[in-house]
């Protein structure tokens, strides 16, 4: 039972991440009907898995080491007996992954594009609070990333927008060339975005298992890749509308620029091994378009919804993790503990 639970939590989190974050990759293109939903999810699932397996190790190693210093595995360094030590590690994994997964699922059902990283960090802090062991110093790097990710998305959007606009203005292709070219670029950048998403965010799903010594890095990458791809395939539709339509109306060109900026931003973080939020990257990219086109094009109602999601996600995940930790500790006599 516990064996299933500890992996199910991670798989559930991966699925929720895929469902919520896939919208960041193809949401703009699908909502503006440039790419079919079915094509988008199949391509996303394939490239998310490839990204996780080929390029996801750096993030997993960073996060698993970070966890070792913070919560569950720190217990292993204490003087308590090995059986209890293992029990605490497993309970931490289950509480963290389930709390984060439930939070992301709730937000997905509410059609809110949120940050899975925030949910995971919120859950880790929740468990840490229950263990009276929160490493607030470690949060500094994460919070800096939460700020620099949307800024990076906006920055790349502005750079790419003017760069490609310059060439398009010079070239002025006919619609019969421009339209298929944009479809092709959107698909290619979407695949790249999915790859970067897998590479960057697989750590959020499975680094906890590496940190707890339950998986090797490669096993964790495969497990996380499959979990995210499953979420992409089956539950990605609701959030796509919010990202692609509600915040800002995009044409083919601006959609392409946003998807590319998002992909480049999170790929850079994947290369340096810091799991960041793809949602924050795409919202930053959309802001970049708002900056270029003028503030009037932004739907502030939808943006408020997104920001409130970002605010509540870590809080809800933290509260849920604390609740699950309490529940787990009420049932200490379960087999396998």
């Amino acid at each position: 039972m516990i064996f299933i639970l500890k992996y199910l939590g991670g798989f559930f989190l991966g699925g929720a991440l895929g469902a919520n974050d896939c919208s960041n990759v193809f949401g703009t293109a699908v909502s503006s009907r440039m790419i079919k939903y079915s094509t988008a999810v199949i391509l996303s699932a394939i490239f998310v898995f490839l990204g996780a397996v080929i390029d996801g190790k750096a993030g997993i190693e960073t996060l698993s080491k970070g966890l070792r210093n913070k919560s569950s595995v720190q217990v292993q360094q204490s003087n308590i007996d090995p059986v209890r030590r293992s029990s605490v590690a497993v309970k931490t994994v289950v509480a963290t992954s389930f709390a984060a997964a439930i939070t992301v699922t709730i937000m997905t059902l509410l059609k809110m594009p949120i940050s899975t990283s925030q949910a995971v960090v919120g859950a880790i802090v929740g468990v840490g609070l229950m263990q009276k062991n929160v490493n607030l110093g470690g949060l500094e790097k994460i919070v800096i990333c939460w700020i620099t990710t949307p800024l990076g998305g906006a920055f790349f959007t502005i750079v790419f927008y003017y760069f490609f606009k310059y060439f398009l203005d010079k070239w002025k292709p006919s619609v019969f060339i421009y339209d298929p070219l944009m479809s092709l670029l959107l698909t290619v950048c979407g695949c790249y975005g999915a790859y970067a998403l897998g590479a960057n965010n697989v750590a959020n799903v499975s680094a906890v298992f590496v940190g707890a010594g339950m998986m090797t890095t490669m096993q964790a990458a495969c497990f996380g890749g499959i979990a995210i791809a499953t979420g992409v395939l089956f539950f990605a539709k609701p959030v796509m509308t919010t990202v692609g339509k509600s915040i800002i109306k995009l044409n083919a060109f601006t959609a392409f620029v946003c998807v590319l900026s998002h992909a480049v931003t999170i790929h850079i973080y994947a290369e340096i091994g810091v799991p960041v939020s793809s949602t924050q990257a795409i919202i930053g990219a959309l802001f970049g378009i708002g900056f270029i086109k003028g503030a009037h094009v932004i739907n502030y109602g939808s943006l408020l919804k997104v920001f409130s999601g970002w605010l509540f996600t870590p809080v809800i995940a933290c509260a849920l993790a604390m609740f699950l930790w309490i529940i787990e500790n009420l049932s200490v006599n379960l087999n396998g503990y």
Binding site: S32, R33, M34, V175, F176, D179, P180, M182, S183, N251, A252
Partner: peptide
């Protein structure tokens, strides 16, 4: 065919 929906509608 491969024209974008907005272009199709316009044409």
């Amino acid at each position: 065919k491969s024209l974008l929906p907005e272009t199709r509608e316009d044409i």
